[in-house]
Amino acid sequence: MQVSQYQDLRVQRTINSIYDAFKRLICEKEYSKITVTELAKMAQINKKTFYRYYPTLDDLLIELQTRYSQAYLRNCLRSLKDA
Score class of each variant (00 low, 15 high):
Met42Lys: 11
Tyr6Ile: 05
Tyr53Val: 04
Thr35Asp: 02
Ile45Thr: 03
Gln5Cys: 06
Met1Ala: 15
Gln70Leu: 15
Arg52Cys: 08
Lys81Asn: 07
Ile62Gln: 14
Ile26Ala: 11
Ser32His: 10
Arg74Pro: 00
Met1Tyr: 10
Leu60Glu: 02
Gln7Cys: 09
Ile15Ala: 03
Thr49Asn: 04
Tyr31Gln: 08
Cys27Thr: 12
Thr56Arg: 07
Lys33Ser: 09
Ser79Lys: 13
Leu80Lys: 10
Asn46Leu: 05
Arg74Lys: 08
Tyr68Arg: 11
Thr56Glu: 05
Lys47Tyr: 02
Pro55Ser: 13
Glu63Cys: 14
Tyr19Arg: 10
Phe50Thr: 00
Tyr6Thr: 12
Glu38Met: 02
Arg74Ser: 00
Arg52Thr: 14
Ala43His: 00
Asp20Ile: 06
Ala71His: 07
Met1Ser: 08
Asp59Ile: 05
Asp8Tyr: 08
Leu77Tyr: 08
Ile34Ala: 03
Asp58Lys: 15
Cys76Trp: 00
Tyr31Phe: 11
Leu57Tyr: 03
Arg24Gln: 12
Lys47Ser: 12
Gln2His: 05
Thr14Glu: 04
Leu77Asp: 09
Glu30Ala: 12
Lys33Pro: 06
Asn16Glu: 09
Leu73Ile: 07
Leu61His: 14
Ala83Ser: 15
Asp59Val: 10
Ser32Phe: 05
Leu61Met: 12
Thr14Ser: 04
Asn46Ile: 01
Met1Gln: 12
Asp8Thr: 06
Ala71Ser: 04
Cys76Lys: 06
Tyr31Gly: 02
Arg52Leu: 09
Met1Leu: 13
Tyr53Ile: 05
Asp8Val: 09
Gln2Phe: 08
Phe50Cys: 01
Thr56Gln: 06
Gln44Thr: 10
Gln2Met: 09
Ile62Lys: 15
Pro55Asp: 15
Ile26Glu: 11
Ala21Lys: 01
Arg78Ala: 13
Leu9Met: 09
Leu77Cys: 06
Thr35Tyr: 04
Asp82Pro: 01
Leu60Pro: 01
Asp20Phe: 06
Tyr54Asp: 01
Ala40Tyr: 01
Gln5Phe: 04
Leu60Met: 06
Arg74Tyr: 00
Thr14Gln: 05
Tyr53Cys: 04
Glu63His: 15
Phe50Pro: 02
Val36Ile: 12
Ser4Leu: 07
Lys48Asp: 11
Phe22Gln: 02
Val11Cys: 04
Lys48Ser: 14
Gln2Ala: 13
Asp8Glu: 11
Lys47Arg: 15
Glu63Lys: 14
Tyr54Val: 04
Val11Arg: 07
Val11Leu: 05
Tyr6Trp: 07
Cys27Glu: 15
Arg13Ser: 11
Ala43Leu: 02
Lys41Ile: 06
Asp58Glu: 14
Tyr31Ser: 08
Tyr68Trp: 11
Ser69Met: 09
Ile18Arg: 02
Asp82His: 12
Ile34Gly: 03
Ile15Gly: 02
Tyr72His: 09
Thr14His: 00
Ser69His: 13
Pro55Ile: 02
Ile15Trp: 03
Arg67Phe: 15
Tyr53Asn: 07
Arg13Met: 11
Lys81Pro: 00
Thr56Ala: 05
Lys48Glu: 13
Thr49Ile: 05
Ser4Thr: 13
Asn75Thr: 10
Ala21Trp: 01
Cys27Pro: 00
Arg52His: 13
Asp82Trp: 09
Ser4Gln: 06
Val11Asp: 05
Leu77Met: 08
Ala40Met: 04
Tyr72Cys: 07
Ala71Val: 11
Tyr68Leu: 13
Glu30Tyr: 03
Lys47Ala: 10
Thr14Lys: 03
Thr37Lys: 13
Tyr53Pro: 04
Cys27Asp: 13
Asp59Glu: 15
